[in-house]
């Protein structure tokens, strides 16, 4: 295998070395890929507009979350221990919030509440990271994922967010619920991940 390494690098060197004028890295402005160049006074409002367009659900109050979950009788779920203390009293006694995610009882959790590292206003994207997410499975396996976001953590656009990827080993940009169009091009939401993607604004 180290033989493969040396061999591949030699072949690359030979091929590249024979190119007369290797292409330079092009100059391009940071904003090139940004499609919405409007000044954003209210990033949360802009983010909500995009999130909704991609079938996500922005909520501003935990009470709204309680109401939504009750409509579907989703009363049992996983919750980040650090958030449980704040949310449990607001959600009320009929909710059971488990603070560890037991993989053997995967389907018992109807929702998972975790923190978002941030969001991207331009694309309605939520950003979750290993550092901020208390359980990867808790944020993924239940039908409803609730990502809790602070309004200060909203990036303007993908360029700004890409510049701030940082050193977390696992950064994920989530844009709407899990989906597929593999069968006859028909859009179905909730394939392996959540069918409902909620973003709850933290005070």
């Amino acid at each position: 295998m180290s033989a493969d390494r040396e061999e591949i690098l030699r072949r690359v060197k030979d091929a590249v070395g024979a190119i007369e004028h290797p292409a330079d890295y092009p100059d391009w402005p940071d904003g090139l890929a940004v499609c919405d160049k409007r000044p954003l006074d209210d990033r949360w409002a802009a983010f909500c507009e995009r999130l909704t367009a991609f079938h996500g659900m922005p909520l501003e109050k935990p009470e709204e979350l309680a109401e939504y979950l009750k409509t579907f009788r989703y009363t049992h779920g996983y919750c980040d221990p650090e958030l449980a203390g704040v949310l449990a009293p607001v959600l009320g006694p009929e909710f059971t919030l488990e603070e560890t995610f037991e993989r053997s009882r995967l389907d018992d959790y109807r929702f998972g509440i975790t923190r978002a590292r941030g969001a991207i206003a331009e694309t309605g994207t939520l950003i979750v990271t290993d550092g901020q997410t208390s359980s990867r499975l808790g944020a993924l396996a239940p039908w409803v994922h609730v990502a809790c976001l602070r309004s200060d953590d909203i990036f303007r656009d993908t360029a700004e967010a890409a510049a701030a990827l940082g050193d977390d080993p696992n950064v994920i940009w989530i844009t709407g619920p899990s989906k597929t169009a593999d069968v006859e091009g028909i859009l179905i939401e909730g394939v392996h991940g959540p069918g409902v993607q909620v973003c709850l604004l933290l005070p």
Partner: peptide, 18 residues
């Protein structure tokens, strides 16, 4: 953007259970 864009730069963080 595709729904899940994952940026992975190593094994999971120490305190991450999964």
């Amino acid at each position: 953007l595709t729904v899940y864009t994952e940026f992975i730069s190593g094994p999971k963080a120490a305190k991450q259970p999964d």
